[in-house]
Nucleic acid binder design. Structure first.
Length: 195
DNA sequence: CTCCGGATTCGT
DNA sequence: CGAATCCGGAGT
């Protein structure tokens, strides 16, 4: 069966992948696949757009307000999902990066649908809705459950995608941090949330 | 306890 | 451009 073969061929990323600085992780997440099994049906999307949030010194990062009930997952060990509710309406998913205490993460902003995805996937809220990700997924270990990121099999002769770096979206309150080039996406991909 | 505003999306 | 809609975080 096609779906099973794709997932079997994919390789769940190890803890060490996430235990690096968020800029490196952000760039390398592009092209990986996000998988979430909902009612035993695996939903799969290719990550095409992300943003890096560097830590407490980054005024756009939630962790800049210190360790709180909401942000404690960001302060925890790498390879976990940080999922939060935004504007009372939508969920956003991050992967936690770096060692415990560093409080950095990468926000997943857009997916290219691969399997079992209905509706749009361009934008962090729409991505979570299509993947069936909500706050119950917060703090989920990406190494031990049915929500994870995997490396898809390398397509023969595939050329490396060109990665574009731009300022992050929706963080104008963060002063000069809003201008840092911490949004990454695959050049020309039609599933980017915004040009 | 009250109040404010958001790493968004949709419709006008 | 403004509404929707909830809750974490900060202040009283």
């Amino acid at each position: 069966m096609q779906i099973t073969s794709v997932i079997d061929a994919a390789q769940k990323l190890p803890r060490a992948f996430y235990d690096r600085d968020p800029i490196t992780v952000a760039g390398e997440l592009l092209g990986k696949v996000l998988v979430h099994a909902v009612d035993a049906v695996p939903r799969v999307g290719r990550i095409v757009e992300v943003e890096a949030y560097l830590g407490p010194h980054d005024l756009a990062a939630h962790s800049s307000r210190g360790l709180t009930e909401r942000t404690k997952v960001m302060f925890g060990p790498p390879g976990h999902a940080y999922v939060y509710l935004i504007y009372g309406l939508h969920c956003c998913m991050n992967v936690v990066t770096e060692r415990e205490g560093q409080a950095s993460a990468v926000l997943l902003r857009a997916l290219e649908p691969v399997h079992n995805l209905d509706g749009r996937t361009q934008g962090p809220g729409l991505l979570c809705r299509a993947m069936g990700i909500d706050r119950k997924c917060n703090a989920h270990d990406l190494l031990s459950g049915d929500l994870y990121v995997a490396a898809p099999p390398l397509a023969a002769g595939a050329k490396a995608p060109v990665i574009v770096r731009r300022p992050r979206i929706g963080v104008d309150y963060a002063g000069h941090w809003a201008r840092r080039l911490l949004r990454f996406y695959i050049n020309g991909n039609p599933f980017i949330s915004r040009p």
